[in-house]
Simulated scan of single mutants.
Amino acid sequence: MGVYNVHERLLPANQSEVGALIDTLASGTDKLWPKGGWPTMRLDRPLEVGAVGGHGPVRYTVAAYVPSQWVRFTFHGPRGFHGFHEYATFAVDQEHTLLRHTLAMDAHGPARLTWPLILRPFHDACLEDSLDRAELACTGTVARPAHWSRYVRLLRKLMR
């Protein structure tokens, strides 16, 4: 099963300011990865090609990294995830930047069920929370905060 999942937010900030958020991933000063009950993104060393880590059951390696612009993580877990997820910045003009998160993978075996039933709803909620953090970091506020669906709230309750 092919999966292509994109979340993006247009931010009123220049590309270097938005890109600097990517550079904080998995650090003690992470300004992009969501908090509040989401598994922490961890790497075995600072963000660089070859760093290994993940969040929750999702395991990956940093496959490519252009500081303040783009980072790609290739999956090696959970079983059945074959592909990548990445953050990238795209300058729209001097004062606006698009921050995009892309997940592209082939789901095999158990992932054909766990992705649509459990992991995708969590992923979507987590990524919208991440984009809220980016907006907060760039503007000091979030115009339209993300809200978890009833299904995500139910899944979170069941997982406790």
Results as ranks from 00 to 15, higher is better:
P121R: 02
S130Q: 13
C138K: 04
E135F: 01
A107M: 07
P57W: 10
H96M: 03
T139Q: 12
L113D: 08
K31L: 11
G53I: 06
M105N: 10
G56S: 06
Y65H: 10
H82G: 15
T97C: 06
A51P: 00
D30V: 12
V66I: 05
L119H: 11
H108E: 11
T29W: 07
E135I: 09
W33L: 01
P110E: 14
L127M: 15
K35P: 03
L119Y: 14
L136W: 08
D132A: 14
P121M: 01
V62W: 02
C138N: 04
A107N: 03
A146F: 03
H55K: 05
R42Y: 14
A64F: 00
T102G: 04
P46M: 08
P34Y: 11
M41G: 10
L131D: 09
R79G: 14
P34R: 09
V142G: 14
F90M: 04
A143F: 09
W115N: 03
F81K: 05
R42C: 13
Q94P: 06
G37L: 03
A125R: 04
L98R: 15
T89F: 15
E86A: 14
T139H: 12
C138A: 06
E128T: 13
A88V: 04
A134G: 05
V92Q: 07
K31F: 09
E48A: 15
K31C: 07
V62A: 08
V71Y: 09
A51G: 10
A104S: 14
T40C: 06
T40K: 15
S68Q: 14
A137V: 00
G36L: 00
A91W: 08
P46K: 12
F84W: 14
P145Y: 10
H76Q: 14
G53T: 07
K31V: 00
T40V: 15
R120E: 15
E48W: 03
R133Y: 15
T89N: 10
A143W: 05
R120F: 07
D30G: 12
Q94I: 06
A63P: 00
G50F: 01
E135R: 08
V66R: 07
